[in-house]
Design a protein around this nucleic acid. Structure first.
Length: 840
RNA sequence: GCCCGGAUGGCGGAAUCGGUAGACGCGGAGGCCUCAAAAGCCUUUGCCGGCAACGGCGUGCGGGUUCGAGUCCCGCUCCGGGCACCA
């Protein structure tokens, strides 16, 4: 037999010590039939909720899944052996675009397509030996899950957390539909039709996540999450403190008019340096402030900004600080309230309508973007902070003494900010203001394969929620998937036509579906009691299991999914759908590293997937699991290379040696007083138990495997010592090793254990081994003797050696004396029992 | 541009608190077994010099702190990730 991986041809020539396929199948069946990892909600043991991010079912598992679910399975089995009732559920994030695209291409209904992919994924997870309480399986497209998803939407609607507003979206004129950002090619064209994508204002549904911005930010501090993930979320929320204030528009006679522009700044202290003001092209006052003379130029710029897609702007941003900032003068001026000077008002596309007030005061001396714009358009620069003497750049945004700033002169930046805000508030011109980069969550999707948004539009009553007893609103099955890309729902008259729940008159159904991130924002709550019929979640079950003790998943979800889920948990508590539990859903989050190939992420779209199934057949799931645990720190990326297959084979060889050394060697018969060599083995066993236990606790699986391998190597050697191994010592060593390996390589561990302990409970039902502290203490250690920091000798000493004795021993060493060359030590650093450093 | 990671033998990686650099594995070399091979087993393997004992060098680069630095500090280079005109 032969297989192909990474384009490299290899031969299946490993002669195994045991029938890997039979052993793995046997135990996978056993765990399922005996319901080993099903857990009841009234389990009396201490509780532990372990969860891997539920997968999007794209077919059989890929190596990223294998890595993820191997880690998760290790946690589940390890915690179970430590006496916990472990909740280990899984489900499928089964709505989404790929199934819909497949439907358009092949005509297969997305449900049929998706359920086939789920079956494939389930099969490959089972073949990995990953264990779950399958009774709790939840799939986003299950009508029962959709029902509660919609009920949550309606509750959010009632609470004002869901609202409808106009938003700029990517619109493809050829396909007559809205596109997700990912569907717009990098050159700004539609991925399907190739037409240039436009921006359009459409009515869309939003969740008011911004109401929680402050709490979501503040609560990050208390989370046991990787710092980089917390930082990413912090940056995403992007809190900025500053001030908002009015700039009065200058009237025709030169005095302030009633009209004013509100601006936001994080640097109110620099206000004296304002030399112009800018409106975003979409700002509602643009037309009003544009004089006849400048009308043509302003309209041209506004049209240009309107036509450019998000991606085009992103690309423009990539150009860096040299980016040409397009802007035109409106013909109007505003009065700087700080110094009563008029400054010109521009319209420019570097100011965004979506942030702050969509208008800014421009201070070129202290802002790089304003500086670049001022240079291009010949606008003055007035410094309000004294830069350091050596400073040669344009804009200076650092610390310094305030200058040219009236009542702020002489102050430092922080104090000046405070004074400026106080002054604005006292004068009634403005207020202190905090802004966030975070926007409300746009949840509408003009897609078929998603959860329908459960509202109807009545000519008389407007937006009306579908009554809860009529949920779920399900999409009809008799739809046609057209290559136009338009959602079939919008063309389905029977679905579209409905009646108003209030007046019974004719009404039209919403045809948008929800972003699939909505589905994944609360599935972990549903797992606590997926059978609950009276609401999305059962308060009792949720109180018991939540929060998730260990959440495991790819760092690619570090921002959106984790932020949305944190928002949902809070919002559900606040609208009364969740009891008053901890407001953070995930106590501990582990972000696993990516599998990469030649530097880029391994993914279906890149065509560089290496399916695990060939490895299940070639070396078995245990060897593949061991490889993923062993090959490096779980949080770091791993580069799949030509050498990877050889490492995986090595893992298989290790398991073969384990099998042979524990099952095929003659049974040890020696008893009586243990010898020094026996004791040495016992020490190693107990040290290994301690080391592996610690390694697993701190997620250092690669060293846990290495420690097991060391013990195994010693055990092989011990099996061959003169006189044979001592029976009890060997059994203790063998059993300990199997217990340590049980969460990592469950099939072979279970099989060897069963063969060695016929009729007794299986290895996974045993308690995790403990170690004897007395046996962990070394009876002798190697003391390093350095001369001037260089190792010159190593001396075996007792761990309890006194400093004086250590020093004496070190100084009497021949090697040390010759290294000293007769010189008298000026200083001796003694760190018993590990080190002595003699300084000449 | 800003913010976060990372860089250790031929390769993946270890070194948990500033104290023996290279655990464990892959690969390589030599040997045993075999008619031969595969598998398995044993020995060896950071680099340079040396028959050897041993000596020198060595954790991306340049400095520094320290008796002692892969680990701490300052300044860089390269690689990866996130954000990206957010006022």
């Amino acid at each position: 037999m032969a297989g192909t991986a990474a384009g490299v041809h290899y031969d299946l020539v490993m002669a195994r010590a045991y029938d890997v396929a039979a052993v793995e199948r046997k135990w996978q069946d056993r765990w399922r039939v005996e319901r080993t990892y099903e857990v009841e909600n009234d389990d009396p043991r201490p509780l532990f909720y372990s969860l891997c991010m539920y997968p999007y079912p794209s077919g059989p598992a890929h190596q990223g899944h294998v890595r993820n679910y191997t880690f998760g399975d290790l946690v589940v089995r390890h915690r179970t052996m430590n006496g916990y009732a472990v909740l280990s559920p899984i489900g499928f994030d089964s709505f989404g675009l790929p199934a819909e695209n497949a439907a358009i291409q092949t005509g297969t209904h997305p449900r049929v397509f998706t359920e086939a992919r789920i079956a494939e994924l389930k099969d490959s997870l089972s073949r990995l030996g990953a264990v779950y309480d399958w009774r709790r399986e939840v799939r986003s497209h299950d009508p029962e899950y959709m029902r509660w998803n919609q009920a949550i939407f309606l509750r959010f609607l009632d609470a004002g957390l869901a609202y409808r507003a106009s938003a700029k979206v990517n619109w493809c004129p050829g396909c007559q539909t809205v596109l997700a950002n990912e569907q717009v090619l990098s050159d700004g064209r539609c991925e399907r039709s190739g037409d240039p994508v436009e921006k359009r204002d459409l009515e869309q549904w939003f969740f008011r996540i911004t109401s929680y911005a402050d709490e979501l930010l503040a609560a990050l501090d208390g989370l046991q999450w990787p710092d980089r993930v917390k930082t990413m979320q912090r940056n995403w929320i992007g809190r900025s403190e500053g001030a908002e204030f009015d700039l009065a528009v200058q009237g025709s006679d030169g005095s302030p008019s009633d009209l004013s522009i509100r601006v936001f700044t994080t640097r109110p202290d620099t206000s004296f340096g304002m030399t112009y003001a800018v409106l975003a092209p979409e700002h509602p006052m643009v037309e009003q402030l544009t004089t006849d003379e400048h009308k043509a130029a302003v309209e041209a710029l506004v049209r240009q900004a309107d036509a450019s897609s998000e991606l085009e702007r992103m690309r423009a941003a990539e150009a860096g600080p040299e980016l040409e900032k397009r802007g035109v003068f409106t013909g109007s001026s505003v009065i700087n309230p700080f110094n009563r000077e008029p400054v010109p008002v521009y319209v420019a596309d570097y100011v965004l309508m979506g942030y702050g007030t969509g208008a800014i005061m421009a201070v070129p001396a202290e802002d790089e973007r304003d500086f670049a714009f001022a240079q291009t358009y010949g606008l003055p620069v007035v410094r309000t902070v004294q830069p350091p003497e050596a400073f040669e750049g344009g804009a200076y945004s650092g610390e310094g003494e305030k200058i040219n700033s009236g009542f702020l002169n002489g102050l430092d930046v922080a104090t000046a900010k405070e004074r400026a805000i106080e002054w604005l508030e006292k004068e009634g011109i403005g207020t202190r203001k905090v802004n966030y980069r975070l926007r409300d969550w746009l949840v509408s999707r003009q897609r078929f394969w998603g959860c329908p948004i459960p509202v109807v539009y009545c000519p008389d009553h407007g937006i009306v929620g579908v009554p809860e007893e009529q949920l779920p609103v399900l999409a009809p099955d008799d739809v046609e998937f057209l290559p136009s890309g338009q959602s079939p729902l919008a063309l389905h008259e029977e679905f579209l036509q409905t009646t108003c729940p209030i007046c019974g008159g004719p009404a039209r159904r919403e045809t948008d579906t929800m972003d699939t991130f909505v589905d994944s924002s609360w599935y972990f709550l549903r797992f606590c009691d997926p059978w609950w019929h009276d609401g999305p979640v059962d308060a009792v079950a949720v109180r018991r299991w939540m929060p998730v003790d260990e959440y495991i998943g790819g760092v690619e979800h570090a921002i959106l999914h984790l932020l949305y889920a944190r928002f949902f948990q809070r919002a559900l508590i606040d609208v009364g759908l969740l009891p008053e539990i901890e407001r953070e859903p995930f106590r501990h989050y582990f972000a696993q590293g990516m599998i990469r190939m030649a530097g880029s992420k391994m993914s279906k779209s890149k065509g560089n997937l290496i399916a695990p199934s060939s490895y299940y057949e070639r070396v078995g799931a245990d060897a593949l699991r061991l490889f993923h645990l062993f090959v490096g720190p779980p949080e770091e990326d791993f580069d799949w290379s030509d050498q990877t297959d050889e490492i995986i084979d090595g893992c298989g060889r290790f398991l073969d040696r384990l099998w042979r050394s524990l099952l095929e060697a003659p049974a040890p018969e020696r008893s009586g007083e243990p010898t020094a060599a026996d004791l040495e083995v016992r020490r190693l066993v107990h040290r290994t138990v301690m080391a592996v236990s610690e390694d697993i606790e701190r997620w250092s699986f690669n060293t846990a495997v290495a420690h097991c391998q060391e013990l195994s190597n010693s055990l092989v050697r011990y099996g061959r010592i003169d006189g044979g191994p001592h029976e009890e010592v060997f059994v203790e060593a063998a059993d300990s090793l199997l217990l340590l390996l049980a969460p990592m390589t469950p099939h072979v561990s279970a099989e060897i254990w069963e063969r060695r302990h016929l009729g007794q409970p299986g290895v996974h039902l045993q308690h995790w081994p403990s170690f004897d502290p007395a046996l962990v203490v070394e009876d002798h250690v190697t003391m390093v003797v350095q001369v001037n920091g260089k190792v010159r000798d190593r001396i075996e000493v007792a761990p309890s050696i006194a400093a004086a004795e250590a020093e004496e021993l070190a100084l009497s060493s021949d090697r040390v004396r010759s290294a000293l060359g007769g010189a008298t030590p000026s200083r001796v650093i003694v760190r018993p029992p590990s080190l002595v450093n003699v300084v000449p």
